[in-house]
């Protein structure tokens, strides 16, 4: 029996619980028994990407301890998955602890972003979802260019019953969130987000979907301020929706 852990991510855990709940619902519906190790907190990406490597290293240590015993770790976030898979090695090297480097090399490849886990490990694209709405999909930068998830999320969305999926113009361009960039360079961040939101509004979609709630908080914050009449939703929540229970 494979042991699968949910890495909820701290941001989802505290601010967007609907997303990890949808992830659990979806995985259980697909017959995966998923565990939530309660000792997990944060992957440390916010520290790493702001330059606080010393604060990030204990997060690396904790992550490999908490998730080391699992066969697969699933996270509904491209950027947190990217942080573990692509940045932990550098942090472990900085710590000077060869044991930590070995643990990272062992654990990191077993960490999957949700769409990767569904398509590559479970081998499904039709997850039995139903979502009769006009939707556009924004590929987040870290899922696209760090993890290279490619069109996996779109393949999943295309199989959803009743969905009216419209292409987002200039989809691969960054929304401008960028973690603490959104605060440290708020003006440029908002300028980038304004263009993203303009493209989203041009599609006539009711909902913009992405695999990272951090980017969606930025995009949704701008849409909300404009009273745009467009809401944001995580990919997991769309995929968890059924004809009986919509998110």
């Amino acid at each position: 029996m494979t042991r699968v852990a949910l890495f909820a991510t701290c941001f989802n855990d505290a601010m967007w619980p609907g997303t990890p709940i949808a992830t659990v619902t979806l995985l259980e519906r697909l017959g995966v028994e998923v565990d939530f190790p309660a000792a997990q907190t944060c992957c440390g990406q916010m520290f790493t990407n702001t330059g606080y490597a010393d604060e990030a290293i204990p997060r690396v240590r904790s992550f490999v301890e908490v998730f080391g015993g699992y066969d697969a770790v699933v996270a509904p976030s491209g950027s947190c998955t990217g942080s573990v898979r692509e940045q932990y090695a550098d942090l472990a090297r900085r710590s000077g602890d060869a044991g930590l480097s070995r643990a990272v090399a062992e654990v990191a490849p077993k960490v999957y972003e949700l769409s990767e886990y569904l398509v590559d490990v479970l081998g499904v694209t039709d997850v039995g979802a139903s979502f009769p709405h006009r939707v556009t999909y924004h590929p987040t930068c870290h899922s696209l260019r760090m993890l290279h998830v490619g069109d996996r999320p779109l393949r999943l969305l295309r199989e959803v019953r009743g969905i009216d999926l419209v292409e987002l113009p200039a989809a691969t361009e960054c929304c401008g969130f960028g973690g603490t960039f959104a605060m440290k360079n708020a003006d440029v961040s908002v300028a980038m987000g304004s263009d993203k939101v303009r493209h989203i509004r041009d599609t006539g979609a009711e909902i913009v979907v992405a695999g990272d709630n951090s980017c969606l908080a930025h995009i949704g914050g701008l849409l909300g301020r404009q009273r745009a009449g467009v809401r944001t939703m995580h990919l997991a929540e769309v995929l968890a929706s059924t004809a009986e229970a919509s998110a």
């Binding site: 909820a8 855990d13 619980p17 609907g18 190790p37 309660a38 914050g221």
Partner: peptide
């Protein structure tokens, strides 16, 4: 943040609290 963007309101129940309520204590 809020100069140009609305900010999300915290949820009434976090995921961790939901898990404990629905799935009980995990390891």
């Amino acid at each position: 943040w809020t100069d140009a963007r609305n900010a999300p309101v915290p949820p009434r129940e976090t995921f961790r609290q939901w898990w404990q309520r629905t799935h009980g204590e995990s390891r």
